[in-house]
Design a protein around this nucleic acid. Structure first.
Lengths: 231, 231
DNA sequence: ACCTGAACACCGTTCAAGT
DNA sequence: ACCTGAACACCGTTCAAGT
């Protein structure tokens, strides 16, 4: 398989992670295995273990590489005035979301991480900085981070796909049975009109739904901030 | 292994799913394999395939079994007056959360599902019914479902653990390095005091954080509902 | 109809050995 | 120090065969 005339680039952690991201983009996250990644790099599986501790560490690195992309995208945004913290935060999150939309598998990897990589730390620090600029107390900033959760990184993990249930998957008799058992749900599904698929992360997580939930949270935070003593 | 004197209970889907839940509770979701589940039932792995299509179907069934527990817990709640929809919804969600807290692995399984099982449908229908009772339009109900996301089912999937970073895992030199690279984040971490672990889903998702985010969203929805034409 | 045992096509990872 | 090949201990799942 390996062409001996090709000048053999040395394996580095950065090259391993970069190739892993490219492979996940091209083949999907399920096809990213130690063996397939090694083959992509023209190397044996065990060689990877000199640059990543194990698969968990590989995925930690992959998540951090994505966070690095977000950090780059976000670095271009202008520094806001304190009064514009909310708009700036919104802008920042939607910019991060653009990066996520380029890597549809990335939300799943982010959700499964426990470690805080250096790029994730940098992105998050800028995030906290903006909230502090807006005058929010440390306590409120902390609450805000939990309340926003994955939305701070530009995605939400959808649970089920209500549109999918009303779509092609659901047979007529299934819908009829649902109508008696779940009248409210069926009635709501009949009222749903979704964006065309493709521009989405997950199945029903389209841009307008993401922004609706985000604005609900940001408006609430702004209100809480205004109510804080000393603000 | 199998004691021939024991009257052999027939294998049913319900018994397979119930045993799967018990096994996940006892050993963790990673230890729930087709082989281990079969052994627990005193049967060969392949016998399971007569009651579940494959492992995905098994996990769909497991998620729906948990939703069934939620449905039972929630059925006891009194029917509210229309004006009390928000308090009733809050109560319902926190009741669902109690079920989730009994099965710490369940959030991960819920997140990975795509199908809508019958018990999940029933729980969700009751949820939609409460929002409709409150006078919200179908459109707003739909937005609300997306905005709440997993919170409607009583959990949030935490991304990283900021407390863990400031806790035992972080070495002093790591914190010192972080202080220069992420001053806002480090300063915030210094102000955090968390509930004792054990009563949590995930690592930093304690009850008060869950309720803070939930109230932010419910308050926002109430405000949007009051602003709707014809409400 | 229901259950079995062996086998297949994968995983991540260890280990001892090469250069 | 870096990379290799074989092997280990698992997976989910197929298949043909039993009762």
């Amino acid at each position: 398989m390996t062409d001996p005339t090709t000048p053999r680039t040395t394996l580095t952690r950065a090259r391993v992670l970069g190739t892993a991201v490219a492979l996940a983009d091209r083949e999907g996250i399920d096809r990213l295995t130690m063996r397939s990644l090694a083959a992509e790099l023209g190397v044996e599986a065990m060689s990877l273990y000199h640059h990543v501790a194990n698969k968990e560490d590989l995925l930690d690195g992959v998540a951090d590489a994505i966070a690095g992309e977000m950090q780059v995208a976000v670095a271009d945004l202008p520094a806001p005035a304190p009064s514009e913290w909310k708009a700036a935060l919104r802008r920042r999150i939607l910019t991060a979301r653009e990066v996520m939309l380029r890597h549809p598998w990335a939300p799943g990897v982010f959700e499964s991480r426990t470690g805080f990589g250096p790029q994730i730390v940098r992105y998050t620090d800028g995030f906290v900085g903006l909230l502090r600029l807006g005058g929010l107390s440390h306590d409120l900033v902390h609450h805000a981070m939990h309340a926003l959760g994955s939305r701070a990184y530009g995605f939400t993990q959808e649970l089920f796909d209500p549109a999918g249930s009303g779509d092609a998957d659901a047979s007529p008799e299934m819908l009829a049975q649902m109508a008696t058992e779940a009248p409210h749900l069926v009635e709501m599904l009949a009222h749903i009109a979704h964006d065309p698929p493709g521009a989405t992360l997950g199945r029903c997580d389209d841009q307008s739904e993401f922004e609706f939930g985000l604005d609900l949270l940001l408006d609430g935070l702004e209100r809480r901030a205004a109510r804080e003593p000393g603000a």
